[in-house]
């Protein structure tokens, strides 16, 4: 879940992204000051899939389990958005993309969340990913 005071953005490319592109994009995003959280979405891949490989973002290695289609970001303030746009313009050169501002993360646990994950579910993960998942979030060192 998220605090409603923080602005959110969604980056959606015209194509599903190859791991190399995801790696470059995430590294660029990581270098921007003011990104609090992000989640990468897309159709799930089997582990043997050529698009499912380990990418290095910042100082962390991440196993891609999805074919990345959209990236949702939570920002500290709206001043970060121009920098995000500049990054996207740099990465998405062969096809178009959309950078939307809106509300893409849950602010309250739903009834279904309660039924699926119980009353003690990790509130930081609700609405972003499965709180019961054994692989937790990847924590990236910021540049601040």
């Amino acid at each position: 879940m998220t605090d409603t005071t923080f602005p959110q953005c969604r980056i959606a490319g015209e194509r599903l992204l190859n791991p190399d592109t995801v790696e470059r994009l995430l590294n660029k995003i990581c270098s921007i000051c003011g990104v609090r959280r992000m989640i990468i979405n897309g159709p799930r891949l089997s582990t043997a899939h050529e698009m499912s490989r380990v990418i290095k973002v910042g100082n962390q290695e991440i196993q891609l389990e999805v074919h990345v289609g959209t990236i949702i970001l939570e920002l500290e303030n709206r001043d970060v958005i121009p920098a995000l746009k500049a990054v996207c313009d740099e990465i998405f050169t062969k096809f178009s993309y959309r950078l939307q501002e809106g509300r893409f993360m849950k602010t309250e646990a739903s009834l279904v969340d309660y039924a699926k994950y119980g009353p003690d579910a990790d509130k930081d993960m609700l609405g972003l990913s499965d709180p019961k998942s054994r692989s937790g979030p990847v924590i990236l060192q910021g540049s601040r």
Binding site: R15, L17, H67
Partner: peptide, 10 residues
């Protein structure tokens, strides 16, 4: 679904 960067269907 959207195609991938190589133009292939998922």
């Amino acid at each position: 679904l959207r195609l991938d960067e190589n133009g292939m269907m998922f």
